[in-house]
């Protein structure tokens, strides 16, 4: 597995695209002031992590936006994107490789996209995917407080939202105190380091195994083992690979604030 990633790094195929207009205004970026928190999983030896200020899309990328992207970058169209970078289900329910579907569909978050495709999209917007710690830090907010995640009331709500997870049209669904939509209850979202969050010195940790996602999970976390919504997210990330595409996995982009 590790070797596959090394191989990818050596390929001439450009993953990062030059910045260009995607035909539609990019979603509003919301500034997330940095801070520290205890993530559910941290790097070995770490308990509290610092998150520098960053900018995060106020909502997930829509099918319409992704349609503009694949029209400008045909190599990311269904049928053209290499199987190394996208699994068989890539954009499978689109009307055609360059048509995301009905007017209603177009406002939904794009799903069935791989990590590689999501990463290329953000790069084309001169942005990047958020890191796991950035995403998790932002998701601690409820409607009133930027850090509500340790309260049992919000934990139960976040869990119910996670269990009712479905693609919400852009700008709908749960909106937090910063104005960010659908971090809870919408689709699962790619993060830049979904597979390295469990990294250690042992090469096996980049496989689907040994990610502390089974029985002993609660005992080995550094964060709050009662945050079940977070467990569901980490478990999902632990199960995907870079080329995975699923009907519940979309993404949004981020930028460093500096």
């Amino acid at each position: 597995m590790k070797h596959r990633w090394l191989l990818l790094a050596l390929l001439p195929f450009p993953l990062a695209m030059p910045a260009s207009g995607s035909g539609r205004p990019a979603p509003e970026l919301v500034r997330i002031e940095g801070g520290t928190f205890r993530p559910l999983y941290a790097q070995p030896g770490e308990t509290v992590v610092s998150v520098a200020p960053f900018l995060l899309d106020a909502r997930p990328v829509t099918r319409a936006e992704f349609e503009s992207f694949v029209r400008e970058h045909p190599r990311w169209q269904r049928g053209r994107a290499p199987a190394l970078f996208v699994s068989a289900g890539y954009l499978h329910d689109w009307a055609s490789p360059t048509a995301a579907g009905s007017a209603v569909d177009r406002e939904l978050p794009v799903t069935d996209v791989s990590w590689f495709a999501a990463r290329a999209y953000c790069a084309a917007r001169a942005a990047r995917l958020p890191t796991t710690n950035e995403w998790e830090f932002a998701a601690r907010a409820d409607e009133r407080r930027p850090d509500a995640a340790s309260g049992s009331g919000f934990r139960q709500r976040a869990l119910e939202l996670a269990l009712g997870r479905r693609p919400e049209p852009a700008g709908r669904g749960f909106q937090d105190v910063r104005g960010v939509f659908a971090l809870h209850g919408g689709v699962m979202e790619w993060v830049s380091d979904f597979q390295s969050i469990f990294a250690g010195s042992d090469s096996r940790v980049t496989s689907r195994r040994d990610r502390n996602m089974t029985c002993a999970a609660g005992a080995t976390t550094s964060g709050d083992s009662g945050d079940y919504a977070a467990f569901l997210r980490y478990a999902y990330r632990a199960t995907v690979e870079g080329r995975t595409t699923t009907g519940t996995m979309g993404f949004r982009c981020a930028r460093s604030a500096s």
Partner: peptide, 20 residues
């Protein structure tokens, strides 16, 4: 995880599956 299995995690790691 099947308790009848002698092997890593009773099969837990080998059988992690996404929807579909």
């Amino acid at each position: 995880d099947l308790h009848a299995v002698t092997g890593q995690g009773g099969g837990a790691e080998a059988t992690m599956v996404l929807p579909g």
